[in-house]
């Protein structure tokens, strides 16, 4: 069976095909084509990590090819053969050292960016952020604009050059809220209001999706994000206010039923709807019941979770916040039967 020519031909054809497809697709690599400051920093970070890894990767791949070729077994091999050569402190130091250095560099960069790009951190801007509340329903996204008083399904319009503060929660299953061209995602979890700050620098229509599996029609949970000028945005809000029906309690109930949905627009929504969704599972007289961070034994994570807790619980009232804080500092109990749940 003459294998080699066939295999070579097949490999070559496939590589060519892939190369053509990949270059054809490069414009559609939306993660690498960001339109906002957060996505921009994340793209830089991706390139940086690729370069740092490549410093090790490329030489090692070449070295592998060289060694396998040079030391292959053949009759008149001139390569040296030392069957008992099994240790070299110098070499070991080199290859323990190189990864340690690379990882140290990458580690420092990662830590710096982790704090810089923390999603709950407000963006620096002279404009006040626009608040949009996103709720993952089965299986559609409901967006409410508390300042404008309007509401949409599977569609967001935002003014460009203005920071957007997304507050994200879920009615049922856990989801993740992701607009690749604006920046990274955040989980949407019931009982919590997660905060994600993003901003669009250019007008355009961007793709958004749910990124964490929520059940049957999960794939239908995509949405459009349209970034426009301030004027166009204001005009859009006006249009929604005057031309579309209100979202009633019944209308909301209908939305929570299982099923997919087209884009929908509402001129108003029941007051405090988002907060109500966040708090819907809290029992008789209890308060917020979720933990902001890893609920685990690792001390490090626990401490860190505490430090960041307030940022994660913006859906809660101040009173609840102070209770949670009080609890974190050891004063565990409040009056009879009322506990700041964790």
């Amino acid at each position: 069976m003459n294998l080699k020519p066939k295999i070579r031909l097949l490999t070559f054809a496939l590589i060519m095909l892939m190369a053509v497809l990949l270059t054809g697709c490069s414009e559609q690599m939306i993660v690498l084509d960001p339109k906002g400051p957060i996505g921009e920093s994340q793209k830089d970070l991706i390139y940086l990590s690729v370069i740092l890894c490549a410093i090790v990767l490329v030489p090692v791949l070449l070295l592998t090819a060289f060694i396998v070729w040079r030391y292959r077994d053949r009759k008149d091999s001139k390569a040296s053969y030392k069957p008992n050569w099994e240790h070299s402190t110098k070499l070991e130091i080199i290859w323990w050292g190189i990864p340690i250095i690379i990882i140290a560099i990458l580690g420092v960069i990662t830590v710096k960016y982790t704090y810089e790009l923390e999603p709950s951190k407000p963006l620096v801007s002279d404009k006040a952020p626009l608040v949009i509340e996103a709720t993952s329903l089965d299986w559609k996204w409901l967006f409410t604009y508390p300042e404008e008083g309007i509401s949409t399904v599977n569609y967001i319009q935002i003014p460009k050059d203005r920071p957007i503060q997304f507050k994200v929660t879920a009615d049922q299953a856990m989801n993740s809220f992701w607009i690749p061209q604006l920046g990274g995602q955040i989980y949407a979890m019931s009982g919590m209001a997660m905060t994600l700050h993003l901003q669009a620098d250019e007008p355009g229509l961007y793709y958004g999706s749910g990124a964490n599996f929520t059940g049957e029609l999960f794939a239908k949970m995509t949405f459009d994000v349209k970034a426009t000028s301030d004027e166009e945005y204001d005009a859009w809000v006006k249009e929604i206010k005057s031309n579309y029906p209100a979202l009633t309690e019944d209308g909301f109930k209908k939305l929570t039923e299982k099923g997919a949905s087209n884009q929908q627009f509402f001129s108003s929504f029941p007051e405090g709807l988002f907060d109500r969704v966040v708090k819907q599972y809290i029992g008789k007289g209890g308060t917020g019941h979720h933990h902001g961070g890893g609920s685990t034994e690792a001390e490090a994570s626990k401490d860190a979770a505490k430090a960041n807790e307030h940022e994660q619980h913006e859906g809660m009232s101040d009173k609840e916040m102070s209770e949670m804080e009080g609890m974190d500092h050891g004063a565990v109990k409040t009056a009879s039967g009322e506990h700041a749940g964790h």
Partner: peptide
């Protein structure tokens, strides 16, 4: 992306990267 905060994420990012070191050493060996 669960929003555990920067401290948690930084800690686990570093521990994850640390594993790359012994793994890399094995490749060299």
């Amino acid at each position: 992306t669960m929003g555990s905060g920067a401290n948690v994420n930084a800690f686990f990012a570093i521990t994850t990267m640390l594993i790359a070191i012994p793994t890399g050493v094995k490749i060299f060996n």
